[in-house]
Write a protein that binds this DNA or RNA. Structure first.
Length: 685
DNA sequence: CTAGGGTTAG
């Protein structure tokens, strides 16, 4: 039983894998300097223009929709392009009536149709129809426009399917469209793969393609993959494309975000050596990265260097980046010093500066200082906005003080600041996280009565809150309500629903949900696969779980540590220690470093399998690899000892836990108590 | 870069 069909659509066979050997024997096409932007900019959308109104497209649209209705699927097919054996006279007359339509209007019509799910089948039908009646040439361009449009509207799945019906062999235009579509859909890895493939087909690439991949990496909430970045950089250099200041800056930003400030530093130096001035944003990103790594001293050095070089007058933004470092490591005193330094250099603090300091005070539990600073910023003519209050709210949420939400809301209103959608989203989340569903629903209603439309994040937060509270029925209702209200579910929404159905063991509905997701043109992401591994694994459906893991790898996604945690944990809970250790080995083979979490699971696997000696060898492994055992580690070890009735060894583990600096929690104390109770029982009997 | 940042799922 296949839980998840292999994700790479048929397109993969032609576009995502190396060209067959035979094609290498043919003379390769002459290098074409490709321009990524051609398809996007060649056809300005001017559906309302006078020129456009000269033609009545209604009969054609009607014809196309009846045409595509029978196809039932939104996935375009090439059938319509097949040489007609017999032409319907009505259709011929229809085609004749559009003879005079200029190419750019066809392009505009195509883009417009492709941008909405309801008219997508018509768009897909339009291209082969135009080919068939020879109404618009360069079907290659038409296909790239369509792929582009699909990519822009987040329907990469359809774009990939479509590329199978594009004329073969793939042209530079098709490659560019696919690279762009992949990049815009958060698949930088795939975009990079296509980039390499494009070069193997003898096409030259250009700066925009590298920028697309880079920006796709930067847009993702996850930090960019450092190895992918390195390959991208060396690929660029091997093409002897001179990176300009902009591209180098993008790389500096990307390496900074990837947590590799050293490489960012050396790139920055290289840029300077070439006489290129890096963008301010690159320096600022580097400062942030150094700060995030706790390397505030180096951040200060970079800051001073750019200060001295006078290339970039350190203005508010640079100071903010520096400040961010101190706030992140909790050095409140240093943060205050930076703030004073700004005053001395008469660099005016902006809303961001104040926000960072207010953040620091709130995190330190100094709510009063934060309030004073809010007053101060107002006096200095800087309006506090919803952003700073949502940060404060998030800080309280993370400390479990959801009751403070009301205080923050009041304070905000007192300052004449209206809560915005983000603020409400955080507030709903704060209530949802602590099981206050009524408050969450109240906030939701209040938001709507304030005239703010909930977005997908609002719905997702609300739906997941109900799932977490076990109200799966209500979650499903909200999922329906969301769509009735015209809000399209996104990948996250489906992930939440898949998790919900999996927890309930409603496997058939889970599969329907997956189909629905794909029907919408959405791709499964790492979280989707991890969720599947988790729910299948927890219910003992290990084959399904493994299939999902395999499907994910085939789909070109890199398994995350969390994915393996889910798998190891699933085996551990059932005491299947051999399988757990095997999954652990696969994880290491995938280049993932063992974390405390996965090692704790491994201890649990051995413990549940009555292999206490091996459980303790994992503890030894942790110590040898500079991984600090935590409360969970020691609690799980105590559980392992109790399982094999070695109660008398438990107190020593408890003591080691304390002497190693762990604070025992309720579970740890309970574990010790039950060991002592067993010891007493065995003595008494 | 006079915008963005802050928010959801494993």
């Amino acid at each position: 039983m296949l839980a998840v069909p292999p994700p790479p659509p048929p397109a993969a066979s032609r576009f995502l894998s190396p060209p067959p050997a035979s094609s290498l024997c043919r003379p390769s096409p002459p290098p074409i300097s490709a321009t990524s932007t051609t398809a996007a900019s060649a056809a300005p959308i001017l559906l309302t223009s006078l020129e456009f109104r000269r033609y009545d497209f209604a009969p054609l649209l009607e014809f196309l929709s009846s045409f595509s209705d029978s196809a039932a699927s939104a996935a375009p097919t090439a059938d319509a392009a097949a040489p007609p054996t017999q032409l319907d006279p009505t259709e011929l007359r229809l085609a004749e009536s559009y003879r005079a339509v200029p190419a750019h209007l066809w392009h505009a019509l195509l883009k417009s149709l492709a941008s909405s799910p309801s008219t997508l089948p018509s768009a897909a039908a339009l291209v082969p129809w135009l080919e068939r009646h020879r109404l618009c040439f360069s079907s290659d361009l038409l296909y790239s426009i369509l792929i582009h449009a699909l990519g822009r509207s987040r329907r990469l799945h359809h774009a990939l399917l479509l590329s199978t019906s594009a004329p073969s062999p793939p042209s530079a235009l098709t490659f560019n469209a696919l690279i762009s579509a992949s990049a815009l859909n958060g698949r930088p890895g795939q975009a990079f793969h296509l980039l390499s493939l494009m070069r193997r087909h003898g096409f030259l690439s250009d700066h925009p393609n590298y920028t697309l991949v880079l920006q796709s990496l930067l847009r993702s909430p996850d930090p960019p993959d450092p190895s992918l970045l390195l390959r991208l950089l060396s690929d660029l250099l091997s093409q002897r494309l001179e990176p300009d200041a902009r591209l180098i800056s993008d790389f500096v930003v990307a390496f900074s975000r990837a947590g590799d400030p050293d490489r960012a530093l050396s790139l920055l130096a290289a840029a300077q050596a070439q006489g290129l001035t890096p963008k301010t944003s690159a320096v600022v990103a580097l400062l942030s990265a150094l700060g995030a790594a706790g390397r505030v001293a180096e951040a200060e050095a970079v800051f001073l260097e750019f200060h001295a070089a006078a290339e970039l007058q350190p203005r508010t933004r640079a100071y903010n980046a520096l400040l961010k470092g101190y706030v992140k490591i909790g050095a409140l005193k240093d943060a205050e010093l930076v703030f004073e330094e700004m005053e001395r250099c008469s660099v005016s603090p902006d809303e961001g500066t104040y926000s960072l300091l207010i953040d620091a005070y709130t995190n330190a539990g100094r709510w009063e200082s934060a309030r004073i600073l809010i007053k101060e910023m107002e006096m200095n003519g800087v309006q506090p906005n919803s952003y700073v209050f949502s940060r404060i709210l998030a800080s309280f949420r993370d400390k479990g003080e959801w009751q403070k939400s009301f205080v923050v809301l009041r304070e905000m209103r007192n300052n004449g600041v209206q809560p915005d959608r983000h603020f409400y989203n955080v507030m709903i989340d704060a209530f949802g996280k602590y099981n206050c569903l009524h408050h969450a629903m109240d906030a939701f209603e209040r938001m709507r009565s304030d005239g703010i439309e909930p977005d997908a994040i609002t719905w997702n937060t609300l739906i997941d809150s109900h799932c977490k509270a076990g109200r799966h029925d209500k979650a499903m209702e909200l999922f329906q309500e969301m769509q009735e209200g015209g809000c399209m579910p996104c990948t996250t929404t489906y992930n939440i629903m898949i998790n919900s159905l999996g927890q309930q063991g409603r496997w058939e509905e889970l599969k329907e949900m997956l189909e629905r997701m794909k029907g919408q043109g959405l791709l499964l992401n790492v979280v989707t696969y991890t969720t599947l591994v988790d729910v299948y694994g927890k219910s003992g459906r290990f084959n399904d779980a493994i299939e999902c893991l395999e499907a994910m790898k085939t789909g070109g996604l890199k398994p995350s540590p969390t994915m393996y945690h889910a798998l190891v944990n699933a085996y551990a809970q059932r005491g299947l220690s051999e399988q757990a250790i095997n999954a652990f080995r696969v994880m290491r083979a995938d280049g993932i470093k063992p974390s405390i979490i996965v090692l704790n699971s491994l201890i649990n696997a051995f413990g549940e399998d009555q292999r206490d000696t091996e459980a303790f060898s994992v503890l030894q492994f942790m110590k040898e690899n500079d991984l600090k055992p935590d409360v969970v580690t020691y609690t799980t070890l105590m559980k392992a000892l109790i399982r094999v009735e070695k109660f008398e060894k438990v107190p020593a583990v408890y003591e080691e836990m304390i002497s190693s600096g762990c604070t025992p929690d309720r579970k740890a104390r309970a574990m010790l108590r039950s060991a002592l109770r067993y010891m007493k029982q065995t003595r008494d009997s």
